[in-house]
Nucleic acid binder design. Sequence first.
DNA 1: CGAGCAACCTGCATGC
DNA 2: TGCATGCAGGTTGCTC
Length: 271
Amino acid sequence: MPELPEVETTRKGIQPKVEGQAIQKIIVRNGKLRWPVDPHLEQKLPGLVILSVKRRAKYLLLETEQGHLIVHLGMSGNLRVLPQQEPAVKHDHIDLVLENGFLLRYHDPRRFGSWLWTDKPIQEHALLKSLGPEPLTDDFHSQYLYQALQGRKTAIKTFIMNNHIVVGVGNIYANESLFLSGIHPTRPAQSLTRKEATRLTSHIKTVLKAAIEQGGTTLKDFLTPDGKPGYFEQKLHVYGREGRPCLQCQETVEKVVLNQRAAYFCSNCQS
DNA sequence: CGAGCAACCTGCATGC
DNA sequence: TGCATGCAGGTTGCTC
């Protein structure tokens, strides 16, 4: 579920209902996430006002006057704003109860996500301080990528999914942007030409932007308790299409596993 | 330092 | 129907 576009859609969705609200309390039903949820949050959070809801990479940052909550959705997490009387169901692990009668509810079957607290400057947090540039800003440009590729033997797909190089490129969009760029996912990173680095940079940006726009329209009411996305599926060229014809040339889409993640490609369109 | 991979956890599809 | 297997949108933190 949570690729960068959905995290950004989540941010936009919860922001208006959460920003400016005081926290009444936090309810932790299961704190065994990627890292254990700090039990002191139950004392720390009541009364604090949420000043802003920002995003860095796939982390959502809830700023208060005393510090930040750093929330990650992992593989299967989601956040919704619901009325306080909404009954909790299985895997509803955390509620942030607000003073406006609503709550921010965290649901995450696999519990790969996280809820962390820091009262230090947010950019110095260990998880954030060594992250690469945001893909949709001007800090991520083709010169930067080309330079970063030099001397790196790892597969290009693995490389663009590395958060130290560029953040927010998940498995779906790594596959899609490589397809659109005509670059085979197993190519050593350092083998890309300047031209290929330029194409890849621009396709990463366009593919993520398009997905955010999709998320913005189809998931516009994801705050209500329905939420079955699948909104990007129609637009995917190779992801999840092993054995089916390439939409561009009709050759069969292939799959290999790289760094424990499925890589899909058309060996006729990508080299 | 870079590269590769085990691990965290639940749910679902598939095959016997 | 039941059970085993493999796979899933992410990331850290080992080992070599």
